[in-house]
C-alpha cells in the first residue's frame, strides 16, 4: 500500500543523504521525496511516498525514527490528511489539438503559465492521482517534458 510519511528533522547538511541512504541500504522503495526548510529555520520537513506492506512501512517509520537527526515521523496515511503535488508539463500545441488540450486543462483546473508559437507550459496542482489522470488524458497528444515536485502533505488535525 502507498504511504505518505512526513519527517521533521534537524536542518543539517547531510540530513537528506542520511534518509535516502537509509532507504537504499535497507532496500525500501521511494516513490517520491520532497524536502524544504520550515518556519523554524533549524528544522526541515521531508515528505516521502513509499509503497510496502504494513511490516515494511512499520520498519521504515522505526528506522527513520532511529536516525539521530530525526525529530518526528508521522505516517499521514493513517490519519486525515491533505496531499498535494505540483506538475509542470510542456505540451506540443497545434490548431488540430488546441481545443482538446484547452478542454482538459479546464477540466483539471490547470493553468497555462507560458505559451509559445507551438507549445503550452501547464501547471496542475492536486493529489498525485489527479496529476496521473491529467497526464493520462494527454496521452494521445504530444507531451514534450514533464516535471513533478513529488508529494507534500499535512495532517488535518491541529496537532499532527
Amino acid at each position: 500500500m502507498r504511504h505518505i510519511i512526513s519527517v521533521l528533522l534537524e536542518n543539517e547538511a547531510g540530513a537528506l543523504s542520511r534518509v535516502s541512504g537509509l532507504f537504499s541500504a535497507r532496500g525500501f522503495n521511494i516513490e517520491s521525496l520532497t524536502v524544504a526548510a520550515t518556519n523554524d529555520e533549524t528544522l526541515s520537513r521531508m515528505t516521502i511516498v513509499s509503497v510496502g506492506d504494513d511490516g515494511i512501512i512499520e520498519q521504515i517509520v522505526k528506522q527513520l525514527n532511529k536516525l539521530i537527526d530525526v525529530v518526528k515521523v508521522t505516517d499521514l496515511t493513517s490519519m486525515e490528511h491533505i496531499e498535494r503535488e505540483l506538475l509542470l508539463v510542456k505540451i506540443d500545441v497545434n490548431p488540430d489539438t488546441q481545443a482538446d488540450i484547452d478542454r482538459q486543462i479546464d477540466k483539471f483546473s490547470g493553468k497555462i503559465i507560458d505559451v509559445s508559437e507551438d507549445t503550452y507550459l501547464v501547471e496542475v496542482v492536486g493529489q498525485s492521482k489527479k496529476i496521473n489522470e491529467f497526464l493520462g488524458s494527454l496521452d494521445a497528444l504530444k507531451i514534450l517534458e514533464v516535471s513533478r515536485t513529488g508529494v507534500t502533505g499535512v495532517c488535518q488535525k491541529r496537532e499532527g
Partner: peptide
C-alpha cells in the same frame, strides 16, 4: 532498547 529490532 531499539524499537526497530522489534518485529524486524
Amino acid at each position: 532498547i531499539d524499537p526497530s529490532s522489534i518485529g524486524k
